[in-house]
């Protein structure tokens, strides 16, 4: 485990030494403050739109942090050839993949923590309420979903040489699932064959990332989602993350790194 944590530590250091996170955080904060300063019919108690906007920015920012960080890990190691002195040490390729995954996931978690802290302070200062449990559950579900995304991106990064291709494709896939993932079966019913079967197949085989979006519970003060369901969703995410990491390893284990 020490080797995996060592590899993860380097990814985390990279995150806080690069400017991506700071730029995204400042942008989120600026847009939130700008939205918060708007005056709607002289009513200072209006807060939901602000929570909505801030959470949307957090979702986009965290997704960007996760995808950008994960997409560049292995291609950057290969391009900068840092992978050679690393793999010349007693590190297996499986450990490398797990270490990179853990680093990206922990780094994203760190970013999420900062974002949600900011969110809690902003909304708390307006509403004077602190539903910590609701925030923690929403952040946990988002973080768990990002584990699937990071696994997916790491898999993509084995096959697409340029991190930009991986990033673009991953972003489209993730946003696509978030928007229509739960409706693919409904859409399928409106289509003819073979599109109907393809969409129905996709509906049952894609990772359902949309489950992990608990923003509505936070925005509309609906309390917490059922804890049992959250636990099951966590298990589902762990399974999908495992699938992606296994596929990444299968693609990477015999890859000739010198070409």
């Amino acid at each position: 485990m020490n080797k995996i944590f060592a590899l993860a530590g380097v990814v985390i250091k990279e995150l806080y030494r690069r400017k991506d996170f700071y730029v995204l955080f400042i942008l989120t904060a600026l847009l939130t403050f700008a939205a918060g300063s708007a005056n709607f019919f002289h009513d200072a108690k209006i807060v939901r739109y602000l929570k909505d906007i801030c959470l949307l920015l957090i979702w986009v920012s965290a997704l960007l942090v996760a995808i950008l960080t994960a997409a560049r890990q292995i291609p950057a190691e290969r391009e900068a050839r840092t992978i050679f002195p690393l793999l010349a040490k007693p590190v297996s390729r499986a450990q490398l993949i797990v270490g990179k995954f853990l680093g990206c996931w922990l780094a994203t978690g760190l970013a999420l923590f900062v974002f949600y802290l900011f969110f809690a302070v902003i909304t708390g200062s307006r509403e004077q309420i602190w539903p910590v449990g609701v925030y923690l559950e929403a952040a946990w579900m988002q973080w768990v979903m990002l584990a699937i995304v990071i696994g997916m991106v790491l898999l993509g990064s084995i096959y697409f040489a340029a991190p930009s291709s991986t990033t673009t494709i991953a972003f489209i896939v993730v946003v696509g699932i978030l928007f229509v993932g739960s409706h693919l079966n409904t859409i399928a019913l409106q289509q003819g064959e073979p599109v109907q079967s393809i969409l129905a197949f996709l509906y049952f085989t894609i990772p359902h990332l949309e489950w992990y979006d608990l923003r509505d519970f936070v925005v509309y003060d609906m309390g917490m989602a059922p804890v049992g369901a959250v636990a099951l969703a966590t298990l589902y995410a762990a399974a999908w993350t495992g699938i992606f990491l296994l596929l990444t390893w299968l693609g990477f284990r015999r890859k000739n790194l010198t070409t």
């Binding site: 359902h208 489950w211 992990y212 369901a229 969703a233």
Partner: peptide, 9 residues
């Protein structure tokens, strides 16, 4: 999928 997803809607 639909039934489980409703826990989060």
């Amino acid at each position: 999928i639909d039934a489980f997803g409703r826990n989060f809607r």
